[in-house]
Amino acid sequence: MQSPVQLIPQLAAHLIAAGGKRLRPLLTLSAARLCGYQGERHTGLAACVEFIHTATLLHDDVVDESALRRGQASANAIFGNNASVLVGDFLFARAFQLMVDDGSLEVLRILCSAAATIAEGEVLQLVIQNDMASTEAQYLEVIEGKTAALFAAATRVGAVVADRPLEDAEALDSYGRNLGIAFQLIDDALDYSAVQEQLGKTVGDDFREGKITLPVLLAFARGDDEEKAFWRRVIEDREQTDEDLAFALQLMRRHGVIEETVARAREYGERAIESLRGFPDSPYRRALIDIVAFCIARVR
């Protein structure tokens, strides 16, 4: 992240200090070791994966006008939108440099494809935002793009650097993809949970932005005409009062939509674990299984 342009390392230092789970690079490191890799290429690729993720966060916070990230002031709140977008571009460029340094066209193909898919997922989310006619299929397409694609790429490159057969690469791709969907489902459930406050985030950010997530879609589908009119007003028309979030949470409790969202996340988590069936038991396989449990246990 170093650069002679001082604003870049300053903003980068802010990002590093904010912490985070570093989950995606952990997947790359674990997947490579799971496949028996003993070299060092996986380290640079893990950093590459994290740079792609961090770049998307910088851009997302500008698009969403977020003031907080991981419980601290977001980069755009401190340095401004222009700096956040441009440093995000710098991190994307650095990620591509790391891919080229690795020297594998297959790695380049996987990670470049993931970066393009993430952008498509974010644009699709923008398209369906505030539209209560959106379907669950569209919602899943969004989260497969904006979240699951990078999880899948992060694990798949672990098999590639280890020169494992296509079958293993596809199994790890499936693991990452299903884990990514489970992760995002839990994130979307957390936005309407008191646990969110413990994570340093504001409850109801998705609600205030009019984002179409599974809890909202389920509450809308299960509601009566009066409830449907409420959701159209607050999500589509963005006409919200101070009491609307509390009422939205009440409707979600009434229809059990958070529990349903978490249950679906568990199903995807089980699919992720099933994808590892062909790998022998090892500390790395157990670690990847534990990551699934960790992601879902964030909702308590």
Rank of each mutant, 00 (worst) to 15 (best):
D244G: 05
L27Y: 06
V107L: 09
E40G: 00
Q6K: 10
D89R: 01
E274C: 06
P4Q: 08
R22H: 04
V49S: 07
A93H: 08
T147L: 04
G180L: 10
R164A: 13
K21Q: 02
R24V: 09
A221E: 15
R94F: 00
A67L: 08
L34Y: 02
I16L: 14
A17Q: 13
D188N: 14
S74P: 11
Q125H: 11
G121K: 11
A18W: 01
K201H: 12
R208E: 08
R22A: 03
I212V: 15
N81I: 01
D224H: 09
A263V: 04
D173E: 13
D281F: 06
E226C: 03
N130L: 00
V62A: 06
T261W: 11
E226D: 11
R233N: 13
Y192F: 15
L15K: 01
P25D: 04
D188K: 13
M132W: 05
Q97T: 12
R285P: 04
I16K: 13
F51H: 07
N130Q: 14
R94G: 00
A47Y: 03
A159M: 05
R156W: 00
R277Y: 04
G256F: 09
P283T: 07
F220Y: 15
V5K: 00
E267W: 00
L26N: 01
P165N: 07
E260N: 02
E144A: 12
S113R: 14
F279P: 11
A115V: 14
I235S: 05
I273F: 01
L27V: 04
T28E: 05
V142S: 08
A55S: 14
Q184P: 08
D131E: 10
V85Q: 11
A93K: 06
D188S: 12
P25F: 03
Y175Q: 01
L217V: 12
G145W: 10
I110V: 15
T135F: 03
R254W: 01
V203S: 04
Y268F: 15
R69T: 03
D168L: 02
C112K: 06
E144F: 00
D224W: 05
L218A: 10
R232N: 14
A31L: 01
A115H: 12
H59G: 02
E50M: 09
H14V: 01
I291Y: 12
V216P: 04
D205T: 15
Q2F: 14
D244W: 06
F90E: 05
V161L: 04
V262G: 03
R156M: 13
G80I: 11
D225I: 07
V62N: 07
P280C: 00
D60R: 09
G210E: 05
F220T: 06
F96G: 03
R94Y: 05
D281S: 15
V49T: 15
D89H: 05
E209T: 00
E106T: 15
Q10M: 11
R300D: 08
T43I: 13
I78Y: 10
F92G: 08
S74F: 11
V157D: 03
E270I: 02
R94M: 07
Q196P: 00
F183K: 07
L245R: 12
V161F: 05
E197D: 14
D224M: 10
F90D: 06
L29A: 09
Q10L: 12
M99R: 10
F247A: 07
A17F: 01
I181T: 14
E50Y: 07
L126V: 06
V292N: 09
A93G: 06
Q125P: 08
A159T: 02
R264Q: 13
V85G: 09
G121S: 06
F230G: 13
P283R: 10
R109E: 15
R238T: 07
